[in-house]
Amino acid sequence: MSRHSLHVTVNGEAHAVEVDTRRSLLDLLREDLALTGTQKGCDQGACGACTVHVDGRRVLSCLTLAAQAEGREVTTVEGIGTADELHPVQQAFLDCDAFQCGACTAGQVMSAVALLEEDDWSTRDDVRELMSGNLCRCGAYPRIVDAVLSVRATQEA
């Protein structure tokens, strides 16, 4: 049968679900768990809008089968902060006006949070390269770089 049962932890909450084997992690989040903050931009692994963390690594949820998330810890944009208590990266995106329409923003934020955990970069050009997996059609790139660097500066201070 083309269905699969799995256990997955999303934003700290354990879920046991049965899904169509074709279901992507992205659609599991959006359709089954009603976590619509993670966006579907291409479903082709080519835009980064669906970026989430799986066991702390930034991955594309559109190219991950839900079944492959068995036993994993998934974190989405809803899991890192709320409007009343923004994550420092979310606050920096707001302060730096690092978005317009918002469709790529969840992916950008999740990518940036992961990047800030990585230690193999230092320069503005590094940030540009390491945030290039997240397309922004509104063109907020320079402000996204500002946001990432402002958080790094705070971390270092």
Partner: peptide
């Protein structure tokens, strides 16, 4: 190659 996310996968 690819992007940081794809390289993680």
């Amino acid at each position: 190659a690819a992007s940081p996310q794809l390289r993680s996968m």
